[in-house]
């Protein structure tokens, strides 16, 4: 690579619009994935708290297993194995499902921490008022359990954002895929697109981290 400039600003500016376009896919995957994780995590948390031992056991092992194995393999599994059973999604939908389920396992623990932080007296008060268990959970406990864990959920949102490049492995044209397969492999110049991807990730993460810290401080003031 002698004789070439190490960093070509013209080239960097040329590929930037394409990268920003791909960033939209990345952000969309993050937001939709988090939506799934919020619902899936609640489901797993409820399963984990079930009074039927077999169900709560199952919840425990599902969470352990998802958290104990690589997201990449989980994505491959959904991408290559599900079609064998006649279940076909687009790569993007498969990626969303994989991300969402993976982070459901983490969100379940977040919900659990929130539910545990609600004082026992709240359950007892509900019993005294003759509330059903379901009604107690959804109208009394959950509304109190969620606000304190919002910052923790925010941290997982950022973590999920940083995991979206894995979708490139199942051919989703997100940021990294665009930099490597659409741009890099055409021109054989990786420095500019790869570095720009790093900078874009860093920028979004740092801004979100600041936002979460602000949120945390606001939470502390409330309590």
């Amino acid at each position: 690579m002698d004789g070439e400039t190490l960093w070509d600003w013209g080239y960097a500016l040329e590929v930037l619009p394409q990268l920003l376009q791909a960033m939209r896919i990345t952000l969309m995957a993050t937001v939709c994935g988090m939506g799934l994780a919020l619902v899936g995590g609640l489901f797993l948390a409820i399963l984990r708290r079930s009074r039927i031992p077999a169900l709560s056991r199952a919840g425990f092992w599902i969470i352990e297993f998802i958290r104990g194995t690589p997201l990449l393999i989980q994505l491959y599994f959904y991408f290559y194995v599900l079609p064998d059973f006649g279940i076909r999604f687009s790569p993007f939908a498969t990626g969303l499902f994989g991300l969402g389920l993976h982070y459901s396992a983490y969100m379940a623990e977040v919900y659990r921490a929130g539910i545990d932080s609600v004082p026992k007296g709240q359950w007892e008060a509900a019993v005294a008022l003759n509330f059903s268990r379901r009604r107690t959970f959804f109208t009394l406990i959950l509304p109190q359990a969620v606000p304190p864990v919002i910052p923790a959920a925010g941290n997982y949102l950022v973590a999920m954002f940083k995991d979206t490049p894995l979708l490139s492995a199942i051919t989703v044209a997100e940021l990294l895929y665009t930099a490597k397969d659409d741009i890099g492999s055409q021109t054989f110049r990786y420095i500019e697109p790869m570095t720009l991807v790093g900078v874009l990730f860093l920028a979004v993460s740092l801004i979100s981290a600041r936002g979460i810290r602000g949120l945390e401080r606001k939470m502390e003031l409330k309590t």
């Binding site: 690579m1 190490l6 940083k162 995991d163 979206t164 490049p165 894995l166 490139s168 990294l176 490597k180 890099g184 990786y190 420095i191 790869m194 570095t195 991807v197 790093g198 990730f201 860093l202 993460s205 740092l206 981290a209």
Partner: peptide
Amino acid sequence: VEIFRGTSALVQLFWFYFVLPHFG
């Protein structure tokens, strides 16, 4: 700490793998 927590592990891997050769 900020750089390596702020970017994706896969991006870091590709950066080292594809960009380092440019530096010889």
